[in-house]
Amino acid sequence: MKRILMKGNEALAEAAIRAGCRAYFGYPITPQNEVPEYMARHMPRAGGVFVQAESEIAAINMVHGASGAGVRAMASTSGPGFSLMTEGLSYMIGSRLPGVVVNVMRGGPGLGNIAPSQGDYFQVTRGLGHGDTHGIVLAPSTVQEIVDLMPVAFELSERYRLPVVIAADGILGQMMEPVTLPEPIAPPPPPDWATTGAVGSPRVISSIYLAPEDLERHVLSLMRTYQEIREREQRWEAYRADDAEVLVVAYGTAARVVRSAVDRVRAQGLAAGLIRPITLWPFPTTAFERSPRRWLVVELSAGQMVEDVRLALSGRAPVGFHGRVGGVVPSPAEVAEAIRSAVVGEVVRA
């Protein structure tokens, strides 16, 4: 298989087309602009549809429409645009529609800046919009993993009839790495619920249930799906974790910096390891059944995933936190120091 160099943004666009995506809708925002740029050129050649929408609100509602018609559809954006898309995501969840949305996270809040960030963790994991909403959230940490997760995202989205979010960050979008691309697949036929024309019995896609009893039944059905996802779809990767006395939890770009930091402190005799969640929702709680003496969470945020780690551990071990905000990415040396401090902190407290 031939390896080629690709930017994360371009690789994800190409991987989506190869996964049978035939409709892309977006609105420009850095640091993900190479996605619509690539889609504008390549999606029509694949026989699909590219639309630069008038806003992110329009883009997500176009995904809603295409998905309702049974087409593999996606959008991509970054923080400010993702906020606008959450209204449409809630409608898609309420309507049980699949679809993939990529959030190439940047510094926030507000317009913030265009530097890499993981500050949207709460937004993507706690509820994708109003109501009792959840969607599977996948967090790649290499360009190859972006490519590998793209067909998975569409498949999961269709299996559970819920949107899937790919949570990347500015570095993953802008960085080039070698990738091996999969062979393209043909788009799957429209599912039997799709509104492909009123032939036979009419089909309706809607998120409105005016009678409380009807809506309750609908939400309870969603909750059963959420529970099934929690039980079946947790994904994570462990690195040098088996004999670790201190385990560091990080995802995406932060996990790469931690991986380098783990190697640094291991070289100095400190048994550290890495747990890297790949699904942010469902959070991979089964990765936390074993307890070393000490945990440390590293994020490009003020401390968001750390709450899920503390919930997963239920007080069984102390959990430290090291985060950088504003688009600042810590160096491996800085994180190595944080790991050493976490271990020293335990000794002091003992």
Binding site: L5, I114, G170, Q174, M175, M176, P178
Partner: peptide, 23 residues
Amino acid sequence: GEVLAQAALSEGREVTWLPAYGP
């Protein structure tokens, strides 16, 4: 940087190329 990255790829190495992508 891209020349170095392509050359590294041709030698079968792992490589990352990261631009400063501010304004």
